[in-house]
């Protein structure tokens, strides 16, 4: 470890000595890579913050990102990659922000000095590690974003609407996987309790394909609603879906199915004792 510490010492000296030049070059490279999406001032403050934290780590002679001395640098790098992930920067644009430091330092290294060159190689490996760390944080932030959006989509896509006094409707839109089916089921059952509705219409017009899994989810929802004392009608079965359902051998049993939401509504109204009549027009029989 001793040679590593001395190797670190040489480059640490250079980092302090040429602070201004390196930061300027680094900031220029980052600004260029950002293609105008970041202001010069923004980049400069980011870069000098990173540089300060980095110089402290190099001073300590450590090359491990897990040591306590690296905590500040880790936080700075994580913040950078997270904010870039959220602002839609590409992965390479993000890691360039760190890797550009190598070029900036290299331009300050006297290539005839073998000791300094070795020291630079040591430093270069360190920067690679930072870049890896940045990339990891970046992808983690992206994944968080995806999960977040998935949740929002789930919230948006499952409204339970009141169609009539005592009749609620659930228009299902999009693919129904287990997670969404669960959300739909819970929301529907809760609405039944809250509104005291005895009828629910599950409309599957917006479901692109019905396979055994989707059917299973819908059937479970209907069974659960029945246990609570509400009756479910399934509507919006397109011709193609009807054929698929039959060829898959899915049995809806005694569950009422209707082709359109309108039919289902009329059915539930009739069941709850409401008869719809068209007022006779003058001149009609």
């Amino acid at each position: 470890m001793t040679d590593m510490s001395t190797a670190g010492a040489r480059i640490a000296g250079l980092l302090h000595e040429r602070h201004d030049e390196i930061v300027r070059q680094w900031a220029d490279a980052v600004t260029y890579a950002a293609k105008g999406r970041l202001t010069v001032a923004e980049v400069q403050s980011q870069v000098s913050e990173m540089y300060g934290a980095l110089a402290k780590l190099v001073d300590s002679g450590s090359r491990d990102l897990q040591v306590p001395e690296a905590a500040e640098l880790r936080a700075v790098l994580a913040e950078l990659s997270r904010s870039r992930a959220r602002r839609g920067f590409s992965p390479s644009e993000t890691s360039i922000a760190v890797l550009a430091l190598k070029d900036a330092v290299q331009s300050q290294v006297d290539t005839s000095d073998a000791g300094l060159l070795a020291s630079f190689l040591w430093f270069s490996r360190l920067v690679d590690e930072f870049a890896l760390f940045t990339f990891e944080t970046y992808s983690r932030a992206r994944e968080e974003l995806i999960v977040e959006q998935g949740e929002q989509m789930m919230e948006l896509s499952t409204p339970v609407i009141k169609l009539w006094d005592g009749v609620v409707g659930v228009p299902l839109v999009g693919t129904l996987d287990s997670a969404r089916a669960q959300v739909v089921m819970e929301k529907l059952l809760q609405t039944l309790v809250d509104t005291g509705s005895a009828y629910a219409i599950i409309d599957i017009t917006g479901v692109p394909a019905v396979d055994t899994q989707v059917a299973q989810h819908v059937l479970k929802t209907v069974m659960a609603a029945r246990l609570m004392g509400a009756e479910c009608v399934i509507s919006g079965i397109r011709p193609q879906i009807a054929q698929t359902v039959v060829s898959l051998g899915i049995e809806f049993g005694d569950i009422v199915t209707k082709a359109s939401l309108a039919d289902a509504l009329v059915h539930t109204l009739r069941r709850s004792g409401i008869e719809l009549v068209r007022r006779a027009q003058r001149g009609e029989a």
Partner: peptide, 12 residues
Amino acid sequence: VGMRPAVAITLV
């Protein structure tokens, strides 16, 4: 009467 949603889901 009065079965809770969570109970209904569990039973199913």
